[in-house]
């Protein structure tokens, strides 16, 4: 049985603006006819540009926002009508702001959450011990949340969201602003929690490495509509993103003239050329080797960023 079901869900906002003395009301559809289902234990990467409707979707799934149309079922109930009841079964992390108590030490926040969610004391101790170890929280427990660094706070927030063994966790940009090491540690932790507890994870992010590391499934949303839903390899295959040829020359030269490819970047003797995926690299390499003093070269496959950028702005039809 699906743990999350959305059927034709929309969410409109009224935007009031003022021009001179005239007031205008405009309706903006943040989410427009969204339908999908998520199975228990899935890790779904939910991505899209700023303002695509990601956070609005998460807020509707948690019951904070009431949808303007369509139906939502999370763990079998309508989130906006059963918000308080559903709260025990979900965990939420807002990357941009903490849900912890600013002035209290981390361990006090955890103690309150235990009571709030009615977690049995033995279970709470076991969970806390696991999270303290995996997230390296030992030295932070006595520190008031306001004194924690962003990465430390995020670890605290994630532990807080998981202490009551939720079936579903929503992570809204959990790696935003974190350094590379903190990001890697978080991803490792989330992967382990998902493997150990079969927790369903919905993750919004701008960092596609998060997706690569964690997600079995990717959903792309733009202008409130779903534009892709599938696995990462399918996403890669579906898009005809240009490939890149990186050539190292013996000396610095002006941009190379190669038929069928264009130079996009020149850094000293190194030049980057892009060419369409339909073109074979071999004749290009042969041409360059014959014409210029070639030292070394590599062919780079399209990055996930470039694939998704293409999705957001589909090529205009001629």
């Amino acid at each position: 049985m699906s743990v999350i079901e959305l059927s034709d869900v929309s969410r409109a906002f009224t935007v009031r603006s003022r021009e001179g003395f005239r007031r205008t009301k405009r309706e903006v559809r943040a989410v427009d006819g969204l339908s999908f289902t998520v199975e228990p234990g899935e890790v779904v990467g939910y991505i899209g540009p700023n303002g695509a409707g990601k956070s609005t979707t998460i807020k509707m799934l948690t019951g904070i926002l009431v949808p303007s149309g369509g139906t939502i079922r999370v763990a079998g109930v309508d989130p906006s009508r059963n918000r308080v009841q559903l709260a025990k079964r979900i965990g939420v992390v807002f990357g941009q702001r903490t849900t912890l108590w600013w002035d209290l030490p981390l361990k006090d926040s955890f103690a309150v959450l235990q009571k709030m969610y009615g977690v049995p004391p033995a279970r709470h101790r076991a969970n806390l011990a696991t999270f303290v170890e995996l997230l390296d929280l030992g030295d932070l427990l006595d520190v008031p949340v306001r004194q924690l660094s962003l990465g430390q706070r995020m670890r605290g927030d994630i532990a807080a969201a998981l202490l009551h063994d939720p079936d579903i966790v929503y992570l809204d940009e959990p790696t935003i602003g974190l350094d590379v090491i903190s990001k890697a540690r978080l991803r490792e932790f989330l992967a382990q929690i998902n493997a150990d507890r079969k927790t369903t994870v919905i993750l919004t992010t701008h960092d596609l490495d998060d997706i690569e590391a964690l997600c079995t499934r990717v959903m792309v949303i733009d202008h409130g509509r779903q534009i892709f839903d599938g696995t990462l390899p399918t996403l890669r295959a579906s898009q005809q993103a240009p490939r890149t040829l990186v050539v190292d020359l013996a000396t610095s030269l002006p941009p190379l003239q190669v038929p069928g490819a264009t130079v996009t970047k020149v850094t000293g003797p190194r030049q980057h050329l892009t060419f369409p995926p339909t073109t074979s690299a071999a004749p290009l390499v042969a041409h360059i080797a014959a014409t210029y003093p070639l030292v070394d070269l590599t062919v780079a496959e399209p990055t996930i960023e470039s694939i998704i950028t293409q999705l957001y702005t589909p090529p205009e039809a001629d």
Binding site: G63, V84, Q85
Partner: peptide, 23 residues
């Protein structure tokens, strides 16, 4: 204004109780 009321709305305790007991 700061959007931190959301944190109260994801918890299994009524937002009123949390707001009244806040600090």
């Amino acid at each position: 204004r700061e959007g931190t009321l959301d944190a109260y709305l994801i918890r299994p305790v009524p937002a009123f109780v949390q707001t009244a007991a806040d600090e």
